[in-house]
Design a protein around this nucleic acid. Structure first.
Ligand code: NAD
Ligand code: NAD
Lengths: 219, 219
DNA sequence: TCTATATCGATATATTAATATCGATATAGA
DNA sequence: TCTATATCGATATTAATATATCGATATAGA
């Protein structure tokens, strides 16, 4: 029983995409080795945090040298892409849903959006970035046929719980939820709530503080 | 010098929008008093966290009763709306920018989007939800005339730093940045980076873990 | 009026995350 | 070959956050 399970905390996991993008860019630019100090400088953080995270991720470096860029990249990649399939559906192709469907930045983060679903007949049948939009009633059939287990939920608040139920019935086991609603789902389903207003609140409160005191804190 | 400055931690600030929405809904539904236990249940959290946050926010409750819903709502509202003006500009009216411009959910969170800016002549001149899209070159003039000090940045990675520079030159002091780039700005400017991939990474890692172990952790 | 109880809020503790310290080591350069 | 040094990574410390404990109190109901 060697090496008791390293457990990554949520803050470390949150930093993975940032590391990934930097490492990819630096490798592209020909930097084959990279130190924690360099990474920290580029990302506006402390070197010790980088080293601790990398240790947790299982990336090992060499004294005097740093980390192998490609190896580090591959380790992080493998942490995000170790499922059978990254294919996912998006439910609710409105303003936000269209933006997410169009976006290519999640492809290397373990999420490959392959289709959209909606109830609006004006939208159903259209394509966005090559991804077809289906009627919501098609969801169970297609989810089962394509073995899709992950979904993004982008419908209005009122429809969110019903849609989540439909997704779970269709076999979805992971939901990235953009509606400001706490979904009720079975225990085996993982829900990640994305509340954009959280970040906004931080900005606003900091602005209020700096207006009042002429001070900002970092991050 | 009574009451040494209560300092709110970032986690408490992040929870403000969630409290706000619940309180508004419950007040609407006629619930004039509300307990920490009720709030916690509705939001899937612990009552003690609610009480601690509310104490920090300056919301005081009564034993046996709980909190006055309206008073609590007003306190949180005042924390988010205490600036001279909530008016803000959005720079980069592409897929994501259009979604944010269309969205009404930030109006009570201290952000009132009044116009968009872009360099694409196909977009400039159009209106989204009544908000006009101007050419980016108009930004300095309009920001100064309307005393707008807050901006959302939604341009591609490559353009982000240049746009941020332009915003700062125009007098913007708070930037909500959706581009996955660490912006260089003067000390007095507050930047809040929004990296959607962070939440995605958490979902993906949890899915990987639950696939492998049949276990999920909460949140 | 008096008593029982739900709930807050102050204080204490535990957990988690960030930061500091420092020895070990792989390389570069003498 | 040997030495100096940059860097990692293990351990220790500190700070931030979450959770527990429990007395105080305002109300409901006897
Ligand atoms: N737009 C934003 O910037 C933004 C920001 C933060 C949060 N959100 C949240 O994201 C969600 C979507 O926002 P939006 O602005 O894209 O709304 P929207 O109204 O533009 O789009 C919603 C889409 O969902 C579809 N829909 C409605 N009921 C459905 C159902 N039962 N099944 C399938 N599809 C259904 C509609 O046809 C529409 O296409 C909302 O919950 C909103 O609160 C949006
Ligand atoms: N779309 C998403 O779902 C999503 C998700 C996460 C992050 N992001 C980030 O948000 C940003 C915008 O993404 P998008 O999908 O909306 O891109 P997009 O290409 O659809 O839109 C970008 C817009 O910015 C405009 N623009 C380009 N250069 C400009 C400049 N110098 N000044 C003003 N406007 C300029 C373009 O004309 C375009 O309208 C990107 O940095 C992206 O990484 C997007």
């Amino acid at each position: 029983m060697t090496g008791g399970k390293r457990i990554m905390g949520l803050p470390s996991i949150r930093r993975m995409p940032m590391y990934y993008r930097l490492l990819a860019r630096e490798l592209e630019a020909g930097r084959t080795q990279i130190s924690s100090a360099y990474i920290a400088e580029a990302l506006g953080m402390e070197p010790i945090v980088v080293r601790k995270d990398f240790t947790l991720f299982g990336i090992i470096g060499k004294p005097k040298i740093g980390y192998e860029t490609e190896e580090a990249l591959q380790v992080i990649d493998s942490l995000m892409n170790s499922r059978d399939s990254n294919e996912a559906f998006l439910v609710g192709v409105g303003n936000l849903g269209q933006a997410l469907l169009s976006y290519r930045g999640f492809e290397h983060m373990g999420l490959d959006l392959i289709a959209g679903f909606d109830v609006d007949s004006d939208i159903v049948g259209r394509r966005i970035q090559g991804r077809e939009i289906f009627a919501l009633v098609e969801l169970p059939r297609l989810a089962k046929r394509l073995h899709v287990k992950t979904g993004i939920l982008c419908v209005p608040e009122e429809a969110a719980q019903d849609c989540a139920d439909a997704m779970v019935d269709a076999g979805i086991e992971g939901i990235w939820n953009f509606a400001p609603v706490r979904l009720q789902v079975p225990d085996y389903v993982v829900v990640q709530n994305e509340d954009l207003a959280e970040g906004l609140a931080i900005l606003i409160v900091k602005l209020n503080q700096s207006k009042r005191e002429g001070i900002q804190r970092t991050n």
